[in-house]
Amino acid sequence: MRKLISLVLFLATVIVSGSFAAYPSKAIKLIVPSKAGGSTDTTARLFAQTAKKYWKGARFIIVDKPGSGGLMGFEAEARSRADGYTLGLMFTPQIVAHIVAKRATYTLDSFKIIGNIAEDPEIVVVPAQSSVKNLDDLVKLAKSKKITAAVNGIGSDDFLAAKNFETAAGIKFNLMPTRGSTEEKAAILGNHIEVAFMNLSQMLAQHKAGKARIIAIMAKKRSDIAMDIKTAPEQGYNVLMTATRGMIINAKVKKSIADKISDLYTKVMNDKGFQAKTKKAFIFLKPMKGKVYRDYLEQLQKDTQKVYDVSPW
């Protein structure tokens, strides 16, 4: 028994002294609010792999907490211990959409925003066989008959884009929410629906292979990797939407540690190897540091609120 007690005391000392050692002194968890093997998960794994280069000896554990459009993961991130050993990935607009829809117990103030890592602009895509060549064609078709538009879930970037586009063009789609972008992809390639709102990375390969047609990208500028796709504003519809993927920590993390994490973020984002790998994996980097990204999120929350007020979910 005495041996047991001394063992417990010894372990306790190790654990306590560990938390006073120089940060980082133990494994760092990186919470991913989506499934293993998905794009966000890959972003996190590449980030961790690169981060090890700058924090020698640091160990990262990827913790996938999928479910409910990221809500499970965001909640876990908000509740995590504020010791700097839990970093979180998040994506927009879901993180603010849950606040707006009153599903979340967190607010943006629950987090310290480290910065944005990547983005994936919204696109409008039609089947290759479709007669629709641009947004005007699409609007004309939608005015002549009821057409089905697929979006990946309610409250997602796809959904918000479709709703915003409906308002801008004065039309009404037959909205078909899917369970994941794979279903959208299959429905477009199989010509089962008229149009889908998706992200660029999900359909770029099919577009280039001529199996589907992206008719607009909902960004201010055309994308470097697909210069042939016109932007929505170019075609006279001022609808912008993009999915961003950033990094956050608990708001209560000490400033000295938060600064170290921010510094790590900057180093990884500037790393040539990280840039090369993400490019191959169709992860489009878009650095936005803490304050800038925070402003972006606040604006996004306001915009999402507007959509929610008109058509709540």
């Binding site: 499934k35 794994r45 961790a48």
Partner: peptide, 9 residues
């Protein structure tokens, strides 16, 4: 799925 995700990087 987990194993493949782990292998990607």
């Amino acid at each position: 799925t987990m194993a493949v995700a782990l292998l990607i990087p």
